[in-house]
Simulated scan of single mutants.
Amino acid sequence: MRDAEQSRPAEPPVHVAIIMDGNGRWAKARGLPRTAGHKKGVEAVRRTVEAARELGIGYLTIFSFSSENWRRPEEEVSDLMGLLRFYLRSEIAELHKAGVRLRVMGDRTRLADDINRLIDQAEGLTADNKALTLVVALSYGSRQEIAMAARRLAEEVKAGRLDPAAIDEEAVTARLYTADIPDPDLIVRTSGEQRLSNFLLWQSAYSELVFVDTLWPDFTKRDLEAAIEEFHRRERRFGATTAGSR
């Protein structure tokens, strides 16, 4: 029985989150404008979504545009928003056909009205899909998200709807964008950088972190599989100890 259990394929992580980094460096290395790297990065998103679905991952969160990215040159931001429009118009039908549910989280007040309409339409169309939930962190910053949750709690206390003594981890979690999404089991960052960059700070308390040298436009299913293999080599204790440890 033990041999059978050891030969059984390991279950994939329920939730994988990816910090997609390296588009600019990919383009620079080829003497191309940064826009070319971003366009190539969209192809990597397509590959990775399909790979995640094939591998049986339940949730895939991608960090597509941070709250800090608004400070980039206006031309680059405009190009990124153009790519977002293209993705929402050209890819949603395929995502829907593949059974992928789309969720967008972040400060959408800074997005153009037409982009918000496209997001609403895409989320509505794919709402009942079950094969994979694709969460796109857009205009997102984790500190901003936590501050938003704290503000909501303060407003509820002020209105008399919430006892301050009732504020605990669950209360904070319930007011985050990810309230109905499990915390990520695995966070992958590409391009060799080793930091979270204001991404899912609350939710990543017990996530396994894997940093890979591959630039995002070159990321493939094999890279994802390798990160998952590394995840399975880790011993997740969530602050506890295992038998025989001290």
Rank of each mutant, 00 (worst) to 15 (best):
M1N: 12
D3H: 08
A4F: 04
S7H: 13
R8N: 13
A10R: 11
P12G: 12
P12C: 11
P13W: 01
V14A: 09
I19E: 01
D21G: 05
G22L: 01
G22V: 05
G22H: 02
G24R: 12
A27P: 11
K28S: 13
K28A: 15
G31N: 13
P33A: 05
P33R: 11
T35N: 10
G37P: 02
K39G: 01
G41W: 05
V45T: 14
R46Q: 15
T48Y: 02
A51N: 04
A51M: 06
A51V: 09
A52G: 14
A52T: 03
R53C: 10
R53F: 05
G56Q: 10
I57E: 01
G58H: 08
L60A: 09
F63T: 03
F65D: 12
E68F: 03
R72H: 00
D79I: 12
L80S: 04
M81Q: 02
G82D: 07
R85E: 11
I92V: 15
I92C: 09
K97F: 10
G99S: 13
R101E: 15
L102V: 15
N116Y: 01
L118E: 10
A122S: 15
A122I: 04
E123I: 01
L125K: 14
A127H: 14
D128L: 08
N129D: 15
A131W: 01
L132G: 10
A137N: 05
A137M: 07
S139K: 07
S139I: 02
Y140T: 08
G141M: 00
R143P: 03
R143C: 00
R143K: 07
E145I: 00
A154S: 15
E155M: 06
E155K: 05
E155V: 01
L162C: 09
A165Q: 15
E169V: 03
E170T: 11
E170P: 00
A171V: 06
V172A: 08
T173P: 00
A174D: 14
L176N: 07
Y177S: 13
D180P: 00
I181L: 11
I181Q: 00
I181E: 07
P182G: 09
P182T: 10
P182N: 09
D183F: 04
D185T: 00
L186D: 03
I187P: 10
V188C: 13
N198K: 07
A205M: 02
L209S: 11
V212M: 09
D213Q: 11
T214I: 05
L215E: 04
T220A: 03
L224C: 09
E225A: 10
A226S: 14
E229N: 09
F231H: 08
R233N: 11
R234F: 11
E235M: 06
R237S: 03
F238P: 02
A240R: 13
A240Q: 14
T241L: 14
T241K: 14
A243D: 08
A243H: 12
R246H: 13
